[in-house]
Each structure stands twice: as structure tokens, then as C-alpha cells.
Design a protein around this nucleic acid. Structure first.
Length: 478
DNA sequence: AATCCAGCCAACCGCGGTCTA
DNA sequence: TTAGACCGCGGTTGGCTGGAT
């Protein structure tokens, strides 16, 4: 293969041919760096170098190993292809589900996602996502399955809120949201453990469960159609109106109308072409509003039975990660030392959206211990199998340096956090259909195709979301 | 058989954050 | 305090491949 190298400072058209890699071209390129595909010989050199010196110091590879590659290139090659425990091949459905969910929370944070998927690289995930995006875009499907959409919105509500707190930790929120307990009240849960649940993950004891089985829905006062969709999109002028449902509650936090999670219309065929860099990101998603949550969730048949809701995520950084998650875990563990929050004292606040709350409930109920409960246990000096690795270092070290909780600002944060969730939880899961919606103004929501000024056919809704949910089965899309 | 096209994948580039002298 | 080096991340590009026409 004669990949032409786009080297600005070198006119060499480096070939990927192994034979050229170590002969004339090298001398020609001395003092410069090779670009283009890596050859087996180069790989061998790099592997040998890393074996000898370890990772890092990538620029010294160029100097000391005789490899005419820049440090960047070496790091990339190592990270994406040469490092051990790399998992090659197609993503499993479970991995795909994890990616979708993580993307709904993190946006295009490929490295963070990769940290949650042992053996996978950010580049792989990025490529996967971009490909998937294109596919769904072409099919006019929403990026996220609705249940992920709901989960993400709840996550970002929490995330956004915590960001406003002087002592809050966004990463803590992230962490909390990445450790949803198994679905509550799901009779199938006990014996429905998906055997494909990323069993190769080192810490699969932590269950990552999509909490979105609990959906908001609007009940139709006219009867029936309890799963009527409430399509709200960023285009919707009513998005803000629905947002005001909570805006007055959230005050200055002012959730902005429009969900970044629904950049595509919900109806196939009306999708504007977007480029890959238009994927929703948390940056924009901080504007994510309750409308997004409502809009998407309400689209879902409450009885939807999506087995893909069950998957696990390694809550701790897998081997070879950047250490970021370790830091997050450490942080979260530290925060967990603040003990129980007051929401545990208020049974009326038993949330159905808040994963955090779910975790707390689980911890109390003695259910499968999700991560937060595990952290709580950690806080009381009990050891858990999960997080063990970090407990050995980070948590204990952290606890050494932390003052005993008293008038800790974190306590205040927890309190305020709970207040937010109490608001959310008092937001009824089933609520009367708004007047504006009953008036058949759904066409004003920018979703004309879907509703056509009349309440949508639940069957159509279900079909649409079946498409959305079963996005894996899209062979005919292209 | 030739061509086209979409998907996949590897690699590069630029930017920003962190570290260090 | 600051400038430079280093590193990691996300976006983008472009070659390869296989299926469709």
C-alpha cells in the first residue's frame, strides 16, 4: 500500500513497505520523522523500547530507539495497537450499549469512554461512534435510544447542578451516574442477568443498569394512550414552556429548553445532514432540560422490554487507563465519607430518576451493592471487592488527609443535591397532559411528521422507538 | 470486469492542559 | 511568574476493502 504521507515538512512519500522502513528512507529521514503506516519492524522496535523503558517519555523513543517517529506517533501506535490486553474486533452488543450510554453522559469524551471499556481504545470508540452516527443520521433515527436519553438527562441534571456548587464535584456526579444499580422493581432482574454482560471486565461486580426503565409519561385525560409521546425538541417553542415546569423550581439554575440528546428529529426522513463533529457534547448538554427528559421518556412505552438495558460497566479504571477514572473514584470515595445524606431520611423522596438515590436505596435495602453503596461501605471501613484496588491506595490515602465530617461544606452540597432530587422526584412520573399538547399543537414542536397535529399513534411511537432502541439491527439502513 | 460508494480503520494534526526549569 | 517541553485528547483525513450496480 502506498499511502501518501501528508508531511508538511517532508516531501518524502513514505511507504508502508517494511523494506523501506529501515534502509535508504531512514537515512533520508534522519533528523525528521517518519509518517504514515507503521511497519512491523517499527512496531517491534517500539515494543522493545517500551518493554525496556516503560510507557511515557515518548519523545525519547525517537532519540533513543532509532525509531524515526515522533513521540506522538509512538504513543498513538502503542496505545492503539501495541499495548497488551488490547481487544480487537467488533464491539459486542454490550459494549455498544455501554458506549451509547456513556456518550449520552459524556459526549465525545472518547478517552473516558475507553477507560470504561477495557481493551478498547478511544480511537476505536470514536470510529465506532462516528460510523454509527452516520448510519443513524442516514436513517433519520435519534442518536440515543430513549431509555438512554432519559438516563442521560437525569445525569446531566445532576451534573449541571453539582457544577454550580462551590464544593461540588462534577466528576463525582459523573461517577455516581455511572453506577446505576440494577433496575428497581424488575421481577426479571434476579434471573435476567445477561450472560453477555461484559464478563471480561475486571470489575463486573458493579452493575451498571440503565435506570430509565422508569419513564415519565403523560397520561391522556381522554383515556387510553397513556404512553402518548410528548415530543419536545430543541426546536420546540414549547420546550421552554415545559421547562418552566421546573425552571421556577430550579431558579437560577434555569434549565434551558432543548435537549442536546435529540439533535435529530424523531421521525425518520427529516434529518438534516450533520457532520460528525456535531455530536452532542456535555458542553452543550449543560443546557439539557427537563423537557428533553420528558420528551424522550414519554416517547417510550412504559412496558418496553429492552434487554439491552442490562449491562455492566467497569466502574473503575481498567488496566492501562489514563488514571483519570482512578482519580474520580478516589474523589468519589472521599466524598462518600460524608456519610448518608438526608434523603435517606425522607421516604417520600424515593426517587425514580436519581441514580444516586437508587444507589442509596439499594444500599439500605441490602440489594446488589452498586458502587455508591460500596463507597458508603468503604466509608465505614468495610472493604468491598469492588473498588478494592483503589481502596488499597487512593481511598485510604484520601481518608488520612481528610478532616472528620462535621460542618463540612460537602455536607451542604449533599443537602442541596438532595433538594434538587427531591424536586425531581416530586415531579410526577405520570402527569396530566398539558393543555397545549391536548390542543393538538404538537405540530408546533417541530415534529410535524410525527404527530401531524394530533396525538400520535402509540403504535407508531412504539415502532419509532423500537427502531431507535434496536439500533443494532439496522442492516438495511444503508 | 469495471466502477462507484459507503464503511472501516489507522494515522495525523491542532489544541489545550500539565509539568518543569 | 513564565516560557518551553511534553503529553493527551478530540477532530479530521485519507487509504483500503467489500458490496452493489
Amino acid at each position: 500500500m502506498a499511502r501518501t504521507v501528508s508531511n508538511n515538512d517532508s516531501t518524502n512519500d513514505e511507504t508502508g513497505d517494511d523494506s523501506n522502513a529501515t534502509t535508504k528512507d531512514e537515512s533520508d529521514v534522519k533528523g525528521r520523522v517518519r509518517k504514515g503506516p507503521w511497519t512491523p519492524a517499527e512496531d517491534a522496535i517500539l515494543v522493545e523500547y517500551v518493554k525496556k523503558h516503560g510507557e511515557g517519555n515518548w519523545n525519547s523513543v525517537h532519540k533513543n530507539s532509532g525509531l524515526f517517529r515522533c513521540g506522538k506517533s509512538c504513543r498513538l501506535r502503542w496505545a492503539n495497537h501495541l499495548r497488551p490486553n488490547l481487544k480487537k474486533g467488533a464491539f459486542s452488543p454490550e459494549e455498544e450499549q455501554v458506549i451509547i450510554d456513556l456518550h449520552s453522559k459524556l459526549g465525545n469524551k472518547w478517552a473516558r469512554m475507553a477507560a470504561q471499556l477495557p481493551g478498547r481504545t478511544d480511537n476505536e470508540i470514536k470510529n465506532f461512534w462516528n460510523t454509527r452516527m452516520k448510519r443513524r443520521q442516514r436513517a433519520g433515527l435519534p442518536i440515543y435510544p430513549p431509555e438512554v436519553h432519559v438516563e442521560a438527562t437525569a445525569y446531566h441534571l445532576q451534573h449541571r447542578y453539582l457544577e454550580h456548587q462551590p464544593h461540588s464535584s462534577a466528576s463525582f456526579a459523573l461517577l455516581l451516574s455511572s453506577c446505576y444499580p440494577k433496575k428497581l422493581n424488575d421481577p426479571s432482574q434476579s434471573n435476567n442477568s445477561n450472560p453477555n454482560q461484559l464478563q471480561n471486565q475486571p470489575d463486573s461486580s458493579n452493575c451498571y443498569i440503565n435506570p430509565s426503565q422508569k419513564h415519565f409519561k403523560f397520561s391522556n385525560e381522554n383515556g387510553g394512550n397513556s404512553n402518548l409521546a410528548l415530543p419536545l425538541s430543541p426546536l420546540s417553542p414549547y420546550g421552554s414552556s415545559s421547562s418552566t415546569l421546573l425552571n421556577h423550581s430550579f431558579g437560577d439554575h434555569g434549565f434551558i429548553a432543548g435537549s442536546p440528546y435529540e439533535p435529530f428529529p424523531l421521525v425518520p426522513g427529516s434529518t438534516p445532514d450533520i457532520s460528525s463533529n456535531q455530536t452532542p457534547t456535555p458542553a452543550s448538554s449543560y443546557a439539557s432540560g427537563v423537557d428533553g427528559l420528558m420528551g424522550s421518556s414519554s416517547m417510550v412505552n412504559n412496558n418496553s422490554n429492552n434487554n439491552n438495558d442490562y449491562y455492566e460497566v467497569a466502574p473503575l479504571s481498567p488496566p492501562g487507563n489514563s488514571g483519570l477514572l482512578d482519580a474520580l473514584v478516589m474523589e468519589a470515595q472521599g466524598l462518600s465519607h460524608n456519610g448518608k445524606s438526608k434523603n435517606e431520611e425522607d421516604p417520600t423522596l424515593s426517587g425514580k430518576l436519581s441514580c444516586k438515590r437508587k444507589n442509596l436505596e439499594y444500599a439500605e435495602e441490602g440489594g446488589t451493592p452498586p458502587m455508591v453503596s460500596a463507597m458508603k461501605k468503604n466509608s465505614s471501613n468495610s472493604t468491598t471487592t469492588e473498588n478494592q484496588r483503589d481502596d488499597d491506595n487512593s481511598s485510604s490515602q484520601w481518608s488520612k488527609g481528610k478532616k472528620v465530617m462535621g460542618e463540612d461544606p460537602m455536607e451542604e452540597m449533599n443537602s442541596m443535591d438532595d433538594d434538587l432530587f427531591s424536586l425531581l422526584n416530586q415531579f410526577p412520573l405520570e402527569m396530566p397532559m398539558p393543555e397545549w399538547y391536548r390542543r393538538g399543537e404538537s405540530q408546533s414542536l417541530g415534529l410535524e411528521n410525527q404527530t401531524n397535529a394530533s396525538p400520535p399513534d402509540p403504535a407508531d411511537q412504539e415502532y419509532a422507538w423500537t427502531l431507535g432502541t434496536c439500533w443494532n439491527n439496522m442492516p438495511s439502513i444503508c
